[in-house]
């Protein structure tokens, strides 16, 4: 027999036409073990209050309409099991909110213009002369097709975008979804606009160097797109194409390699010194002292070398593509 549980849902309700502030309404519902969050939304609409509004369509995780937040976790409603969410948060009460409350128009419906304008910014289409009546396909090896595949699974649901803390503090940041889309085309052997796109995503303040590498996007993505992996692909491509400017953001990325090359182990002090310069380290003294007190910083004179330092150096030499533009 299937089991049921009575759970409490605290739901964000707001109508931009009539309300000054949102309110959270409480609905107690009996939920079956197989039910998904979308079933809960439907139940509220169909049995409690027909004015409750949200987007949804395919109901099986392929159209990307129903992105919401549950207890702050960014999800698509038709993919997440209700019991699993309740268990994850160890609670009988789940808070249902739009993917970004500041952009709410009505209940869970948000104005997604910001998301789509970022999508548009990366030239989200194959740029090539299209043969309108082809008799043969392009030959693409299974390996080359596989390179594109992961990013091509993206359904533009916006779950990663609204989970991204960098987007939250920097509204100009293109964000994980559109950057993954850019990478989908820069890795496509048939595309003619790789350099244009890399130029767009290479811009400081907007592009790949503003990612803080927190991995929220990879964790949140319901389709296994791994957006941060695609951002890393773009990082590498800017070096390969000799487009990476020498600045604090790129030096921070290269600093990892540099720091590892010295000792075969990650030397965090050296990353800071390399990316910001000895003088630039001064502004971090406060944090540095705190970290030292907490035993989080290894002093340069205590930094030991990896047993396999020679091999690490060889590996870096044979695989690294990092050179700065014009250097």
């Amino acid at each position: 027999m299937s089991t049921t549980r009575t759970l409490r849902f605290r739901v964000f309700r707001f109508n931009a036409e009539t309300d000054y502030l949102p309110a959270y309404k409480i609905y107690d519902l009996e939920v079956d073990e197989h039910e998904l969050m979308l079933d809960v939304l439907d139940k509220i609409k169909w049995t409690k209050d027909g004015s409750f509004s949200y987007r949804r369509s395919c109901r099986h995780g392929i159209c990307g309409s129903c992105a919401i937040k549950v207890n702050g976790k960014s999800i698509i409603a038709c993919k997440d099991n209700v019991f699993e969410l309740a268990d994850l948060f160890e609670t009988d009460e789940l808070i249902i909110e739009p993917s970004r409350t500041e952009r709410a128009v009505k209940d869970l419906i948000v104005d997604k213009k910001d998301f789509w304008s970022k999508y548009d910014a990366v030239k989200p289409y194959l740029v090539a002369e299209i043969d309108e009546h082809p008799v043969k396909e392009n030959l693409v090896t299974p390996e080359d097709a596989e390179l594109i595949n992961e990013a091509d699974q993206c359904i533009q649901c916006g779950v990663c975008y609204y989970a991204c803390p960098a987007v939250e503090v920097n509204p100009d940041f293109i964000g994980p979804a559109a950057l993954a889309k850019a990478a989908r085309f820069t890795t496509d052997v048939r595309d003619d606009a790789k350099l244009d796109r890399l130029e767009i995503v290479n811009e400081l303040g907007k592009g790949i160097w503003d990612c803080v590498k927190c991995y929220e996007c990879a964790t949140a993505c319901p389709k296994g797109v791994d957006p941060i992996g695609k951002i890393t692909t773009l990082h590498n491509q800017t070096f390969e194409e000799d487009m990476a400017e020498d600045n604090v953001a790129t030096r921070h990325a290269v600093g990892f390699k540099h720091a590892i090359a010295r000792h075969g182990l990650l030397d965090e002090t050296e990353i800071v010194r390399y990316s910001e310069g000895t003088f630039g380290m001064v502004k971090h003294i406060g944090v540095g002292l705190d970290m030292m007190r907490a035993g989080k910083v290894v002093m340069p004179w205590n930094m030991h070398n990896s047993k396999n330092l020679d091999e690490v150096k060889k590996l870096i030499k044979s695989s690294s593509t990092t050179t700065f533009k014009g250097k």
Binding site: I130, E132, H133, E137, L139, A145, R190
Partner: peptide, 18 residues
């Protein structure tokens, strides 16, 4: 099919690329 492919569709491929 080939028109879709030319426009960017990523079809699964045989070893020879077709």
């Amino acid at each position: 099919i080939r028109w879709l492919e030319k426009m960017g569709a990523v079809f699964s491929r045989n070893e020879d690329g077709s």
